[in-house]
């Protein structure tokens, strides 16, 4: 609860900062919405003509697209702090974070919550629920519960990813492109990942678990997930979280605070 209150205080401050230049905040919001809408229209148009993609119907492909956006926006909303972490390490401000009675990764990861993503996330969830209802895609409550659990699992994988990137930042002070590579890879899951070759699918499951992030929760909702895939999803996230925490601790042990 204490950490939640601190996070809320951080978030309110960031929101004030983001809307300091109101026009700029609205422009960013407009850009994000426009990108989402244009991609949706594109997918809708293409699938209206072809009817299916990799064996999935138009509605199923759009469901993958929605789940991707929900996961992507949630992860960006929560862990946007990583994008400005480099400047804190380079300027030495990270030292000030380390002496505070907070988990060492709290400020780097949760210190810059993107409220603009949240502003899109709420209507997106509402439209997603409407989309599922209209198309009769909720076939059982078990699928919904499994989907929500796997969605939380995705956030955990997202946390592990960003922690790993932060650890690399502490050691090398170079993360800008690494963060974007992560984002580009997750964008591969905008479409059902079955379109990729087998080798790429393995890499997207075990090396950079994009499939765990997006495809598995979406398949759970569609009721086409095998028990093995559920186990793989939880197994991969546990391994990733442990690995990232160890990596973070190692990075901190190497931190020399040279900039401050």
């Amino acid at each position: 609860m204490r950490l939640f209150n601190i996070w809320l205080t951080f978030t309110l401050r960031v929101a004030q900062q983001q809307f300091l230049t109101v026009g700029s905040g609205y422009l960013f919001l407009f850009g994000k919405v426009l990108r989402l809408v244009l991609l949706f229209i594109f997918l809708y148009s293409i699938l209206s003509a072809t009817r299916s993609l990799a064996g999935y119907t138009k509605e199923q492909v759009l469901l993958f697209f929605f789940v991707f956006n929900i996961v992507d926006l949630t992860v960006q909303f929560l862990f946007r702090g990583v994008y400005i972490f480099r400047s804190r390490v380079v300027s030495g401000d990270f030292d000030l974070d380390l002496i505070k009675p907070l988990p060492s990764f709290f400020r780097p990861l949760f210190g810059w919550t993107d409220v603009l993503d949240f502003a899109i996330l709420v209507p997106l969830w509402m439209f997603f629920i409407y989309f599922l209802t209209v198309n009769g895609m909720v076939t059982s409550i078990t699928n919904v519960i499994l989907f929500l659990i796997l969605l939380l699992n995705s956030v955990l994988v997202g946390f592990a990813f960003h922690l790993f990137i932060s650890a690399v930042c502490v050691m090398t002070t170079e993360i800008d492109h690494l963060t974007w590579i992560y984002r580009d890879l997750t964008h591969m899951a905008r479409f059902p990942t079955d379109i990729y070759q087998r080798g790429i699918q393995y890499a997207l499951t075990f090396v950079i678990p994009v499939i765990v992030l997006v495809t598995i929760p979406a398949k759970a909702l569609l009721g086409i997930l095998t028990p093995q895939m559920v186990l793989i999803a939880f197994g991969v996230s546990i391994v990733f979280v442990i690995f990232s925490l160890k990596m973070w601790n190692y990075a901190l042990s190497q931190y020399t605070s040279a900039s401050s």
Binding site: T21, G23, S24, G25, L27, F28, F30, G31, L34
Partner: peptide, 9 residues
Amino acid sequence: EDPWSTRWV
């Protein structure tokens, strides 16, 4: 004030 938003959009 913030040129990045214009450039980004």
